[in-house]
Design a protein around this nucleic acid. Structure first.
Lengths: 248, 248
DNA sequence: CGTGCGGTTGATCCGAGTCAAGCCAAGTGG
DNA sequence: CCACTTGGCTTGACTCGGATCAACCGCACG
């Protein structure tokens, strides 16, 4: 885990902090949205910018999890390990999302970077105390948590009731929409086939087969392993099964 | 939907409110925990006590959902309807749990009473405003939401990875634990077989078969349709599959 | 060149869904 | 009081979708 801050004067640190917030592309969607200049600065001073390489883990399920954080850039997965050693992906964290468990005991999931990722990380005790003093921050955190809950519950429906083909189609739709990629344009598949399987509650072979079927039906094009293009959104949406709509 | 309040003098209403809170058995676990006497009274004055009969619905998925509430007594289900008409139960709400979606647009699930239920219900706009003015209330709501999120994510694992037998066993364990019933003592199954199936992402036939197997293996006894007794917790826990532990 | 790893494809198996029949307890009407 | 219905549950026979096991492909890397 590489931490960007080093030794510097208080003034230099403050300037770095301010510029950090000023150039932050996700402020509007993050929990720090709505914090005034002074409060924002106070808040930021308590955290650190952390950069994770692909594959690095921020916290482990069950650990005392000393930190929470806000994603600035990149993509992380939240996972839980099963007794048989397989892992289930519980969700993804994108820029603006919040990770970790404030006011709690142990971390409820393992948080791992899927791409190079940058976060604002806070010691949990410090974060908890600061939130207690700043209702507007707590409010943003509450909104984020409510959204995450809604999203998790929609995903429950997919896992409980959708067929393998529907899951894969739903996944592609969600990836394209979250990335804001238009139909016809190539969108990135950030996950490996194994990770897609872990996410969708399937096996790698089934994921592969269903992708092949979607390609053969001309709903999508798969130029390479890590990208896809929506050729026929209606067909894809149809294959996703009514779309009780996972999109937030 | 039967609303208990009628016309009464301000003083009588206030007394009713106070006694309502005083005799509330779930205060400690509800979002109103930690509200001081005056604030609690203020808060309570803004809501109403609502009683739902078994089967009555408090709000519908997708509706503008004008209310939120805190469960005092009884049991409700949160459901979402699939395009094919089947429903998936997203979660249960027990005394102390919070239902509805504050600060949001539409209700994200349908909320229906499974037993006779009593709630403190608030108009959403009123609730939102009151929460904004009372950080301690917002804090409690946040804690509840974080817990609900953790619970939903654990349930995702069950739906994504567990076999039918494991799901049914996990369900029985959770029911017994939530009701605080000791092994050997009869515990209530509040749901019908159909509702269990909707909850576990199975069909009614499969639920029935797996219950029969558990009975035959002497893990549980099923005196009648609506109750069960844990005879061998080790066996049941084993059948639940390692128990990556759904209990909070 | 091999060697290894991620992905695809094929053959087979098994668990849960589907369809259908029957059971039992609680109404309901003659 | 008894035949008949009704609704929730169980059980059985069969089907089918996705897991499993296995072979193979293609590419990166030593």
């Amino acid at each position: 885990m590489y931490v960007e801050t080093g030794k510097m004067t208080a003034r230099a640190a403050a300037m770095a902090d301010i510029s950090s917030c000023a150039d932050c592309t996700i402020r509007s969607g993050a929990i720090c949205a709505g914090l005034g200049g002074d409060t924002l600065h106070e808040f930021f001073r308590r955290g650190r910018r952390v950069k994770l390489e692909r594959g690095q883990t921020l916290m482990w399920e069950g650990d005392a999890a000393p930190v929470v954080g806000s994603v600035r850039r990149g993509l992380l997965k939240l996972t839980s390990m099963l007794s048989d050693g397989r892992e289930q992906i519980l969700g993804l964290a994108l820029p603006g999302d919040f990770v970790g468990r404030p006011f709690g005991g142990r971390a409820t999931s393992t948080v791992t970077a899927l791409t190079e990722t940058s976060l604002c990380v806070f010691p949990r005790a410090v974060f908890d105390a600061f939130v207690a003093d700043h209702p507007e921050l707590q409010h943003e955190l509450l909104l984020h948590t409510l959204d995450a809950l809604d999203h998790a519950r929609r995903w429950m429906i997919l896992l409980a009731r959708k067929s393998a083909g529907e899951r894969v189609a739903s996944f592609l739709l969600e990836m394209a929409d979250r990335a804001g990629v238009a139909d016809g344009e190539p969108a990135e598949i950030v996950l490996s086939r194994q990770q897609m399987a872990d996410f969708l509650g399937l096996t790698i072979e089934t994921v592969s087969r269903k992708l092949t079927l979607l390609r053969q039906s001309r709903a999508v094009r798969l130029p390479d392993l890590k990208s896809f293009v929506i050729l026929n959104r209606a067909a894809l949406s149809d294959a996703a099964g009514g779309e009780d709509r996972l999109a937030a």
